[in-house]
Write a protein that binds this DNA or RNA. Structure first.
Lengths: 167, 167
DNA sequence: GGCCAAGTTGAAAATGACTTTCAAAATGCC
DNA sequence: GGCATTTTGAAAGTCATTTTCAACTTGGCC
């Protein structure tokens, strides 16, 4: 429990938060949009999270700070954050779009448990290399890729083997 | 034109088609379902395609052979084909599910052009190896993965550089 | 500090890709 | 052929997103 709590503390320092706000604000200025309290609240809430959130989950967190902020605004702000590189979409292939913040983070991928929905992050520079290599081979200029692994995590596997004997 | 035509001929021989029908029929029998003309028509149409089709695209092709077959039946049959391993889903991350037939085909991945939507297949045994390796490391029993690369194909890049000078 | 054009907000409606429902029709075991 | 069981397809339902629109803010300007 205590461990959990420590682990839940914000990932991001005050300076990083400020820097991210700067990035958003200059993006807004660049494209002629306005600076609003809602957008700041949403950015902060988003940066305080770890892992990946659906729009709905983020909206729920945002409402704790300001109950009057609507889903639509969270939706639009998340798109904005993605535009300026502060957020990026991860598709877990279950019909729900998830976002994670790209602030100060190494490129990584996810392995998802198809039973409990849990996931682990992993880092694999080989995947980046493959992207480049395959793009070159087929004359594509590559911009990004998706890579997810699906399977059963250890605890779901143990749960499952309770009902029938292990192979 | 002639080249195109030759390239458009069915991928699959009569024997392979028959074999696939056998697979479907025994699957139907196994799970207590019935053999219908619609299911056969849909399977055949599907096997005659290359690349990946959305449900809607397959439905359109199926209607050419029998205009009375509805979208719902195509939808349900595609699920059935996926169940018995004749079809598998590919997610291109644009909100549309696509399927390709797994008949007599090496495991492969796709690189998608974000401008024209075209795609190329590529083969990369390294990705399979990575799946195993990463699963083992985190105590997952992996079942599958997704890997797609996104970028600009050569011709879209040339099109784009027409309006502004190349870098 | 107040004005106002332009942008923002959020509730509600629309979209679109599936997914389910249901009554009529087809299948296949006897 | 008889009949329980499945299948079919049109239509309705879901559900995550996306758009609409009228009321509200923001920021540049005086």
């Amino acid at each position: 429990m205590l461990q959990k709590r420590i682990d839940d503390q914000p990932l991001i320092s005050r300076e990083m938060m400020r820097e991210a706000e700067q990035i958003l604000h200059s993006h807004l200025k660049r494209v002629g949009l306005k600076h609003t309290a809602q957008r700041d609240t949403i950015l902060r809430t988003f940066l305080e999270t770890r892992e990946h959130l659906s729009m709905d989950e983020l909206h729920r967190l945002v409402k704790r700070k300001d109950p009057r902020i609507g889903f639509t605004t969270v939706y639009r702000t998340l798109k904005l954050l993605a535009e300026c590189g502060l957020a990026s979409e991860v598709a877990f292939h279950d019909g729900i779009a998830r976002f994670e913040h790209q602030y100060n983070r190494r490129s990584h991928h996810h392995m998802v448990c198809t039973d409990c929905g849990g996931s682990v992050e992993f880092f694999s520079p080989e995947v980046e290399r493959l992207e480049q290599e395959i793009g070159r081979k087929h004359h594509y200029v590559t911009t990004r890729h998706t890579f997810q692994i699906y399977g059963l995590c250890e605890s779901c596997r143990k749960k499952a083997s309770g009902s029938r004997p292990p192979v």
